[in-house]
């Protein structure tokens, strides 16, 4: 858990990594909307979307298998729903459901695998997501690993005590106690963080460092992506 593989990918370099996060975000949205509005029968369109995505993956110089494997996480869920759909007599829709969710998931994965989260958050903010929400996400991600580690230790400790032959009821309350302690520690940590912020002159406003620059290439990339998605959607 300590090293989310996607994050490691996002720190590599490639033509796609070099694009501004806003351009990539815009491209992703155009792509996803195109896919989502494509009728289930348009098999050729789905082939074209996949080809487009493959081009992007190649230019991102990321491990193909790793990406596919990670994107396949959505498959159990979509396969279940696809099976139900097939079963109730709509095979075209069933296939479209599975394909759509897989391609969409892969595209979203490609965005985060080529964009460090900070840049992505800055992009979201410049697109109008409220600043407090962005900051909460940022803090959440920062402390996710710290607190998960604590939880993991507590789980280990709980497992060590399991040999004591407690009944289910007392194990339930032990788990609640652990949860309470985790809560308390998290809360106190938040207090500590806030103190550290104040100590370094925090006055209630976060100011971001250097804003990213949206260059001609970013613009060209965004246009190309939107044009390609739209063309596939309308032509095929």
């Amino acid at each position: 858990m300590h090293h989310v593989v996607v994050e490691r990918w996002s720190r590599r370099s490639s033509p796609l990594h070099a694009r501004d996060a806003r351009a990539k975000l815009g491209a992703l949205l155009a792509f996803l909307v195109a896919i989502s509005t494509t009728p289930p029968q348009a098999a050729r369109a789905f082939v074209a979307y996949s080809a487009l995505l493959a081009v992007a993956i190649v230019s991102a110089r990321l491990p193909f298998q790793g990406l596919l494997g990670r994107a396949a996480l959505v498959l159990p869920l979509s396969a279940t729903f696809a099976a139900v759909t097939w079963w109730s007599g709509d095979p075209a829709r069933a296939i479209a459901l599975a394909v759509k969710s897989f391609i969409s998931g892969l595209a979203a994965l490609l965005l985060v695998a080529t964009t460090p989260l900070t840049q992505l958050l800055n992009a979201l903010e410049s697109l109008g997501v409220p600043r407090p929400l962005i900051l909460v996400v940022q803090f959440l991600y920062r402390y996710l690993f710290v607190i998960s580690e604590q939880a993991q230790h507590m789980r280990l400790a709980a497992r060590c005590r399991q040999g004591l032959g407690l009944d289910r009821r007392s194990r339930f309350y032990a788990a609640a106690g652990a949860l309470g302690v985790l809560f308390a520690r998290s809360w106190e940590r938040a207090d500590g963080i806030y103190r550290a912020m104040l100590a370094r002159g925090f006055s209630g406003r976060f100011s971001p460092l250097a804003p990213a620059r949206f260059g001609a290439r970013d613009f060209a990339f965004l246009c190309a992506a939107v044009a390609a998605s739209t063309a596939i959607r309308l032509a095929l």
Binding site: L117, R189, I193, R200, F202, S207
Partner: peptide, 21 residues
């Protein structure tokens, strides 16, 4: 506790937090 002190997403942003303030 350094984990409480380093709250920004990258080291550079964190160290620059004070001067920006």
């Amino acid at each position: 506790d350094s984990d409480e002190q380093l709250f920004m997403p990258t080291v550079l942003e964190d160290v620059a937090f004070g001067p920006v303030n």
